[in-house]
Design a protein around this nucleic acid. Structure first.
Lengths: 251, 251
DNA sequence: GTTCGCCTTTCCACTGAGTGGAAACATTGT
DNA sequence: ACAATGTTTCCACTCAGTGGAAAGGCGAAC
């Protein structure tokens, strides 16, 4: 969450990225000295960098002198390959699921020991929700996270089971053994669910997306309750997941 | 289109961005020497930069040694503020329009003398289409472009009318006077249309999105023909545009 | 198998680009 | 008017960045 304060990184490049790294989801607009503090750099150095970055379009400076990430970086980010193909392919299918369920729909990939949301469709009046596109959440307490973890290499599973399982809500699974059983269930049944394990009042269901026989992503829905709708949700998701897999393979 | 070859930029920062700038929509994966050439830098220098950028997560290197934009930049790009708020707010409304029309739906802002697509919803079996998220197209031959141009500062309009109006298809408007009349019509009627001016076989309709009394974006649809559907398309778009404006204002 | 050509990686002596403390400047609040 | 805080400019020092060259790899051609 917090933006890696300190650690100036070895070269100039590292320091430039320390400046850029001062920005995060909770800090989208920063003043010069805030950047300096958060990046762990002297003000004058920071000033020089920001000035140059602004002239390069990597940063934007508003009329009040505050900085924000610029369009140039937005452009560059969109060229990141892994996501691009997947997102564009999956997007229509996410809408299909949304249309069928009116639930918030997500697609996510695993990024080390986190789930990284790469796209989302949410209605006008959907539930709350912690996840936005680009956000990272723990694997063990989200629907898509459980799916991704269940199909991750053993090494990763070990690491997650070993590292403390953060208790996000009273319902979060924090016992390694229980999580392990849950993961086995996910592999057996082909889908994962959560019940208020990440956000109170929110349940989720998720299924894997395969390509070349490997699970590369997961799609899921978030709803207030799964009581009466679990079967329908899972069915919708499975249809979409198959469609996405098929689209990915013919190219 | 092509990725700014040469121009090493003054400082180290400039050179780093020359490296990153070697990537564009047509060149998402590059080898070391390709980057060096496109960035106008010596190979050894490029090598040093790329190595450092990879370790920072700004670049990704695949198993065959080719480079691509990394996740770190994807993350950063998503923090770019202008788009973020607008995109998230508009997204559900775009789906509404898609649901009502089954046409490809776009939202775009003006970026200098281009239209910059910031989000899109397209169906499984939609028309072709040149625009992807993040792509820039001329203002004078797209629906959203005309809307944005019609409400742009006089200075911008002058510049576009003066600069040669690129003929993209045989139907593209290339006479300044005719474009000017068209813009007046757009302001009067509150919507713009195109008929195969950007892509053969594709027509579009678009309306402005206002915030604080200024036009800040435009949404539009792309369809094979507007003959029988123009009124419905415009109506759907107007409802969505009003909704987006309202959502933007209460915050 | 050998050779050629291209791409990548490592090395290192040189030097100018980057550094950051300090002081001047601007802005805001009391 | 004064203090406090944030921003910008300046400049002497030096260390980080530079890039030519050579070595190492890889694959295609012969």
């Amino acid at each position: 969450m917090a933006g890696k304060t300190g650690v100036p990184g070895t070269g100039v490049t590292g320091r430039v990225f320390a400046v850029l790294g001062a920005f995060d989801a909770g800090h989208r607009m920063l003043t010069l000295s805030e950047i300096a503090t958060r990046a762990g750099l002297p003000v004058s150095t920071t000033h020089r960098f920001t000035t140059e970055l602004v002239s390069l379009g990597a940063l934007h400076r508003d009329s009040e002198g505050r900085f924000a990430i610029g369009r140039r970086l937005w452009d560059l980010g969109l060229l990141s390959p892994v996501q691009t193909g997947l997102r564009e392919t999956a997007s229509p299918y996410l809408h299909d699921v949304y249309g069928a369920t009116l639930a918030t729909v997500h697609i996510a990939v695993r990024d080390h020991e986190n789930v990284l949301y790469i796209d989302a469709v949410r209605g006008n009046m959907s539930v709350l929700i912690a996840s936005t596109i680009g956000s990272r959440l723990p694997l063990h307490c989200t629907g898509v996270g459980k799916v991704l973890l269940a199909h991750a290499p053993g090494r990763v599973v070990q690491q997650v089971l070993a590292g403390p399982l953060e208790r996000v809500t009273p319902y979060t699974i924090t016992q390694p053994a229980r999580l392990q059983r849950e993961l086995a269930r996910v592999r057996r049944d082909g889908y994962a669910t959560t019940d208020q394990e990440m956000t109170l009042g929110a349940c989720s269901a998720a299924v894997p997306i395969a390509a070349d026989g490997r699970v590369i992503a997961a799609i899921g829905v978030v709803v207030p309750s799964l009581r009466r709708t679990r079967a329908r949700m899972v069915a919708s998701l499975e249809v979409a997941a198959r469609g996405i897999s098929r689209s990915l393979e013919r190219r």
